[in-house]
Design a protein around this nucleic acid. Structure first.
Lengths: 349, 349
DNA sequence: TAAATTTGTGCAATCGATGGCACCAATAAT
DNA sequence: ATTATTGGTGCCATCGATTGCACAAATTTA
């Protein structure tokens, strides 16, 4: 059970005071260059590792960043975290991960844990239940930086990094129109969450800009899973005037719909076009491969990290009331499921 | 900038000493029940939150668990973490995630960071470069519990939680044999890592138990990606005596191989059988769906958490030299890609 | 040359919780 | 009734790094 080396060990070895050692290690201007060199050399020699805990206790700030996400095992979130952790680690910041499991209560509880851990700041994507950002105000009041990413609310009370969902959805819908599809349905994951509202807005806008009517009957709230996608597709084709394409806010329900249509003998693409959202790994590998919107999660994670670093740098700055919003442009990945429609057949299924 | 409530605030409000408050909150036996109740009531009233940092500094142990994995955005790892975080969070432990990106140096650096953060313990899955567990001994010497999961070395120096790779591979290979495939190749991700050695051993054992010769020419080291899988499949069918099936230690290279064979007009299954490993999300959704081995990562994460909790409980126990190994039995998920071989054709491709 | 700065370092308090030891009061044992 | 034990609290040092303040020495300025 070896003891850790502290600044006192260094100070004794050098006949200096602990305060001088502390200052020397932090390049304090009032310490002479010779002393600094001496101290640093000795520190290396003894294998000194600063005790972050002690520093945190004294200064009130740690070198740990807290993250709250709905769940880690989602392609999008795990990639965001991956990029984020990489950037933070390069700057000697540790990343604590917590999951809300789509529960507002858990989200609040996690916030408590992070506060108790005295995190430097918090980076979060809200749960489906979360309607506002009030619980984050406690942090902001204490000057703890908060970044909300991807899933946020309409009125941001703090910095945010988001995907341009509107444009992503617009591009996806327009692409289907340009490939000859005439009646395009939409699966939304939740009418509540802002990101899905934005996607729906993009969908609607694309329709209207191309002189196509927005039909509320063609918009279904469908959970992000395969079974729900199948059921929703069934509903759609039973309509008196069924659609010939779907733009889905979820790749999972898009896949479900595609599987259902194939079982029914409806050709995808050709008779029916499908576009998803999120670029889940499987979309590239299923048959036909699914056209989808790539949110660039790895890039997003890195941008979040950079934004965060920017926030904590300006510690001396007494007022930083500027709420910034970083918007990442998503890419439409054109694959097979949305290929050009075959010669328009007026037949109904 | 509100101040935090401390035990001193409680002690003042109650006319007690801070030590009594501290003891009361921790149910120290020497504090009277009345006092305990008083203190706890007041604590709740004032909204007291213990400062973990201060406690850590004093006691030397935090309530943070460190995790080191190669990369988060892998289905397997993200699910393990998800399960692990859930269990730890239920026990008021925070989880710090770090990625080694398959580099031994980064792995060691992460270990440093975790040590500086004074984590309660470390849970790790080693990088491809890592040959031994020596760098973890620093922790063990300090009595910091370490659990290695999934990727570990042959001789464990500490507790571990692993999948029974041998049996998983054995089942997979046997399944191909039973479905009529006569000459089964194997893709291994790395000859170095123990888990892959175990899978190869399972593969070999199944062959030999069924009277089939092990042919080193049919074993290829193939990275876990689609392109490499394609190239490896090409190599195989060019052999003078090509195989009619592959058991791959990676779903990605299994998929690549499958895609290549389909392009070449070789039927999968029927002419050629394929089984992968890991149950990546896409395996279920591609055509044909890929038979694979499910490592039950969510369960594994939870088991790791439980094992960890067990380790830290026995803090008073002066000697716990028992190195435990928890082995999880994987499931073979039989899907389409390995279906029964069509009437044996003696033709070579 | 004296006074004013600047430079370099040390002292001691502080962050908040913890726990060994001491102490007094109440109860039990002799 | 006297001593031993147990119960209930308080005092104070401690964990290690940080930082305001003090102060001496070195340098600059008047």
């Amino acid at each position: 059970m070896k003891k850790n080396i502290t600044i006192y060990d260094i100070s004794k070895a050098l006949g200096l005071s602990a305060s001088s050692v502390s200052r020397a290690l932090k390049d304090h201007p009032r310490i002479s260059i010779k002393t600094k060199e001496l101290v640093k050399k000795k520190a290396k020699e003894l294998g000194y590792k600063p005790n972050q805990i002690a520093a945190s206790l004294r200064t009130g700030a740690s070198s740990i960043v807290g993250v709250i996400i709905p769940t880690i095992h989602h392609n999008f979130f795990s990639k965001v975290i991956s990029g984020l952790e990489e950037v933070l680690a390069q700057n000697n910041l540790a990343t604590i991960i917590t999951q809300s499991h789509e529960s507002l209560d858990k989200e609040k509880a996690n916030l408590d844990v992070l506060l108790n851990t005295h995190v430097l700041g918090v980076i979060a994507s809200i749960s489906k239940q979360t309607q506002n950002l009030d619980h984050f105000k406690r942090l902001l009041n204490r000057n703890i930086p908060v970044i909300i990413f991807d899933r946020t609310t309409k009125n941001p009370i703090t910095n945010s990094v988001v995907v341009d969902d509107f444009t992503g959805a617009y591009k996806a819908t327009e692409h289907l129109i340009q490939n000859g599809y005439k009646r395009i349905a939409h699966f939304t994951v939740s009418f509540n969450l802002h990101i899905y509202q934005e996607r729906m807005r993009g969908y609607r806008s694309a329709l209207e800009d191309h002189g196509m009517a927005f039909d509320p009957d063609l918009v279904l709230e469908v959970n992000s899973d395969i079974e729900q996608g199948k059921m929703a597709a069934q509903k759609l084709i039973r309509l008196p005037d069924p659609p010939d394409a779907i733009f889905s806010s979820s790749d999972y329900s898009a896949l479900g719909a595609m599987q259902f249509l194939k079982e029914k003998g409806i050709e995808v693409p050709g008779e029916f076009g499908i576009v998803g959202f999120s670029n889940e790994t499987f979309t590239e590998h299923v048959t036909p491969s699914i056209t989808t919107v790539d949110q660039k999660p790895l890039l997003m994670g890195k941008e979040i990290g950079l934004t965060f670093l920017g926030l904590i740098k300006r510690e001396g700055d007494p007022f930083n009331p500027i709420i910034k919003k970083l918007v990442i442009e998503p890419d439409l990945l054109v694959r097979e499921s949305s290929a050009r429609k075959k010669n328009e057949s007026p037949k109904k299924h």
